[in-house]
């Protein structure tokens, strides 16, 4: 059964800067800064155009980024954090 469909904040609302291996995100609507590592930038990128549920997103990330040991529980935790931060929302 399909779970909730997630969609990322539009790119125009987020200023993203790479700082070495970390990405700094400035979320314009909340004026909050987030420091994130992989796979968060990849998740936000994947959910820009198309809403996906967690399973579809996991498959997408495995195919696109060749993630061998992708973990559904970890992805669910990341999605929950990103939703709480306002960086993704349930479509």
């Amino acid at each position: 059964m399909a779970g909730p469909q997630y969609l990322a904040e539009p790119a125009r609302r987020i200023k993203s800067v790479r700082l070495g291996g970390i990405t700094a995100l400035f979320h314009r609507p909340s004026a909050r800064t987030h420091l994130v590592g992989s796979p968060v930038p990849e998740i936000l990128d994947a959910l820009q155009e198309t809403a996906m549920d967690a399973n579809a997103l996991l498959t997408f990330l495995q195919d696109r980024y060749e993630v061998a040991d992708a973990d559904p529980a970890s992805l669910a935790a990341r999605l929950a954090e990103l939703e709480a931060a306002g960086l993704v929302r349930v479509a």
Binding site: K15, I22, A31, L35
Partner: peptide, 24 residues
Amino acid sequence: DEAEAFVRLTQASTNFVGLGQAGF
């Protein structure tokens, strides 16, 4: 590295948050 310097200097700034994107 850049990320550590960024974190340390946000802590060393009193108006980083107040300046919004200009501070970032």
